[in-house]
Nucleic acid binder design. Structure first.
Lengths: 257, 257
DNA sequence: AAGTGGTCTAGACCACTCA
DNA sequence: GAGTGGTCTAGACCACTTG
């Protein structure tokens, strides 16, 4: 016997489908479950490393079938929110771990090892979004942003200069914080933001004089330019970063599915 | 009542899991179904554009539950082998279409449009795999390969030179073929090879003199270098390509999931 | 109205982990 | 042996497309 059921409460206002013109009359139940469970991670009700209730218990608690919970958990695993291990349980991923921090960093050294580098020098300023920033971050003219410049070194050599812009609306009070040298994944986790995909544009360009200077390359030298936008799990942009890098033997590894 | 069932016949010899040391005692049924149905596409028993039987019929034919067929078809859709449309049916994708050809081409023009370019000049030679080719294509020393050089133009300007290597074992008789100017996706389809993922290494390098000449750049100029390996759906490498390109406003678009 | 894929249910059994 | 996720089954109903 099937009974009527209203939509589950406690889900984020707008996910991807809400952006489409043809919104389905009733949001699929497994998507509602996914959003409700993802919200528990974003709000830190479920903390990193913690084992979440098993599928049967969750199904009973939410009043849905185990198969529906399972489908939602599969989506969350694909979104890197959780890890499932047969015989052990389901665990919340740690977004501040090295693995999570390296998620959007595709630079590799000569032997294929991940290159991140220590960001000792980081400066933050606040301002108003310019034209390019509005376009990349989908902001309206005049919206406030934070700008961070980081210089990354490896073995004493400065090899990467990055300029990041973040919407101030998402990161209120960021200017008064101490730890801005880290990666976007750790920062987003502190502000309860779940990260989804990113897109990066790679070109070969002559960097601005100040950047060329910091990198220690002659004026007019062409280096690798990285232009990256990171998006939230539900669509909107979170960070725009432009980086220039120069290091012998370095390359960018792109995986094409 | 459950009855015993032997593994389904007609599956490719080795898929990803077979490469792992811990091979499960019994291959999951939905994976066997996926492989059996993928083989029908590779062998052209199911041709591009054709509607495949519905889920219920397939389940009955294969002697499995509809849910198992559904899981297999979902994997095949993720692998871009088929397209499913609610209310219409399930259709075999055309691997020779523009969409399929552009799958591994991430170069974009100033306005974000896909850049492919016409490859009018293409030369093919055969030879024995060198050290680098053995490493990239996982070949044993001495195995035969085909090498193709293509020059791509856009608006009369040569902007990309690519050198591709393909294992001769996979493409027998390729040297006597006419159409070698196309993309790997169309070529693989003709030889009954299903393509999976690819990985591409992007660096900034000084090209060899002959390449710099063809691109029309001064000797010693640094350009974008693309080093790409395309893999079969079941793992082994199919093509190694090294390309150098130079064009104002061009960039490489990487999607990070 | 008929046929398709998409969702949802409610179980069963299997494979793995750990005490 | 108990508990977990992974697989598999066998249906029901919903949403969409087409005639």
């Amino acid at each position: 016997m099937r009974r009527w059921r209203a939509d589950l409460p406690g889900l984020p206002a707008a996910w991807e489908e809400a952006l489409l013109s043809k919104r389905p009359a009733r949001r699929a139940l497994y998507l509602q479950v996914r959003d409700a469970l993802a919200a528990r991670i974003a709000s830190r009700e479920w903390r990193p490393g913690l084992a979440v209730p098993n599928e049967g218990d969750l199904a009973h608690e939410l009043g849905v079938s185990p198969g529906t919970v399972r489908k939602a958990l599969n989506l969350m695993e694909a979104a890197r929110l959780i890890t499932r291990r047969q015989g052990k349980g389901t665990f919340v991923n740690d977004q501040t771990s090295d693995a999570a921090a390296g998620r959007f960093n595709n630079l590799r050294g000569p032997d294929g090892e991940r290159i991140s580098g220590a960001a000792d020098a980081a400066e933050i300023t606040d301002g108003v979004a310019g034209e390019a920033e509005c376009a990349r971050l989908r902001l309206r003219a005049g919206e406030a942003v934070y700008r961070i410049r980081r210089l990354r070194r490896i073995g004493g050599h400065s090899f990467l200069v990055e300029d990041a812009t973040l919407p101030a609306a998402l990161f209120s009070g960021l200017g008064r914080r101490a730890k801005i040298a880290g990666e976007i994944s750790a920062l987003a986790h502190e502000y309860g933001i779940l990260l989804g995909k990113a897109e990066e544009r790679i070109s070969v360009d002559v960097p601005p004089p100040t950047v060329a200077d910091a990198l220690g390359v002659a004026s007019g030298t062409r280096v690798m330019a990285l232009d990256r936008v990171v998006f939230m799990l539900d669509g909107p942009p979170v960070e725009w970063r432009v980086a220039h890098c120069q290091l012998a033997g370095i390359y960018y590894l792109a995986e094409i599915s």
